[in-house]
Write a protein that binds this DNA or RNA. Structure first.
Lengths: 226, 226
DNA sequence: ATTATGTTGGACTGGCCAGTTCAGTTGTGC
DNA sequence: GCACAACTGAACTGGCCAGTCCAACATAAT
């Protein structure tokens, strides 16, 4: 029938065409797998359906991943990887370049919330919840490789702000945890487990409220009026 | 074989024995269903297995609930009902009887965390996450009937404290949301999606930290040193 | 006793799906 | 040109399970 991949591959670069085609298919399968897993659940998801979604034969899926279980793990690994990058980028906005502290915190909070509310992000958490009993090791991939590192990175930044005298805290890790909690907690209810899309303006409102409370607790100055 | 239910039923009250036996079986099935759903997931859970766990024939399950889907819904309804009762009981500990505010908040926080960390509570949330795509209405049962009401009740209590001049806030609902967030957020990471049991001492620590931050933001007095 | 209702175990149907196999195709490196 | 590796489509096996049906049994009310 149609064989778009190989055709497209050769048009781009002949020497890499074979490998490129293979790699592209791998990515296509991982993407399709996540889409279908997220939509139907791991057990419900048929490998045939994933293959169709990826535009690939079922045998090719088994060729790349061996069985459904490792396909799930690889899917999570790929996902966690991209989530980590995005979250760290958000945290890195928190630097001590003399700007106004409140605005900076709100900015970081907003971008963290955007990561948190991303469709794929919600789908991943739901899938993890669903399969945690059958595959406890998935939790290590997600929490150990992503959530913990992000919190740690955030704690680092807060510690430097405390050292610079702009925040007051003896436990930056606790501050980071509570900052995250103030962000994600209120948004949890509003997004109905990721079912409802939360618009950016609402995210900014939540971020602003979170920072307001956070600064009352941790600001170096006695906290100005609101 | 064995027929323990009817025997136990008649020993209690002859007239109700039939009905009682039936009701007991209904409860047994609901309990078993939740156990198995939680352990294996909705799709994976065999109705035969649930029946066996309940000590009942498979046909009896269909007799009571018609099909697997309504069994799931009834299971959630029963669960949400009991969760609501427990949570409201925890919130009601927050009354304005002149006691020390901080201690009272820590007490409420601790008991809310106990509800939140209960095994069945975690299992319910995981199951909900897993099946939200196929059964979006389950969310209304859980969030609409439980979470929202609890937050509302908490907001009521906080409003009365504010009115009595013991807290300072113009938005008790926001305060309630942030209080909940400061409690559940830090515990989320520690409990590994309910996989790990969090000991009471740790819950007290988290509650104490949450109240500490909360009071810095919302206490009527400028906040004493810690 | 009889009737009605609920329960039981077991057998049975129809459908779904992971994973395999295979014969045939395509593009690449040499 | 040839050999090689990946890919394809399709058929096939074996296992699992929701939901139904049935003949026999228990219990309560009349």
């Amino acid at each position: 029938m149609m064989r778009p991949m190989s055709g497209a591959g050769t048009s781009a670069g002949q020497r890499l065409a074979g490998a490129r085609g293979r790699i592209d298919k791998r990515r296509a399968i991982l993407d399709a797998a996540f889409t279908v897993f997220a939509r139907e659940g791991y057990a419900q998801a048929g490998v045939d359906v994933i293959a169709a979604e990826a535009g690939v034969a079922k045998a090719t899926v088994y060729n790349h991943f061996g069985d459904k279980e490792t396909l799930l793990r690889q899917t999570f690994a790929a996902l966690a990887d991209s989530a980590l990058t995005q979250n760290l980028a958000a945290v890195e906005r928190l630097a001590d370049h003399g700007g106004e502290l409140r605005a900076m915190l709100e900015d970081v909070g907003f971008h963290l919330l955007q990561c948190y509310c991303d469709d794929r992000s919600w789908a991943m958490r739901r899938l993890l919840s669903a399969e945690i009993n059958q595959f406890p090791d998935l939790l290590d991939i997600v929490q150990g490789q992503v959530a913990d590192r992000v919190t740690e990175a955030l704690a680092d930044r807060l510690a430097r702000l405390a050292l610079a005298g702009r925040l007051r805290t003896t436990d930056p890790l606790l501050a980071a945890e509570q900052f995250s909690a103030l962000l994600s907690g209120p948004v949890d209810k509003r997004s109905r487990l990721g079912t409802r899309h939360v618009p950016d303006t609402e995210l900014r409102t939540v971020a602003s409220a979170a920072v307001h409370t956070f600064l009352k607790a941790f600001a170096a100055e006695p906290a100005e009026a609101t």
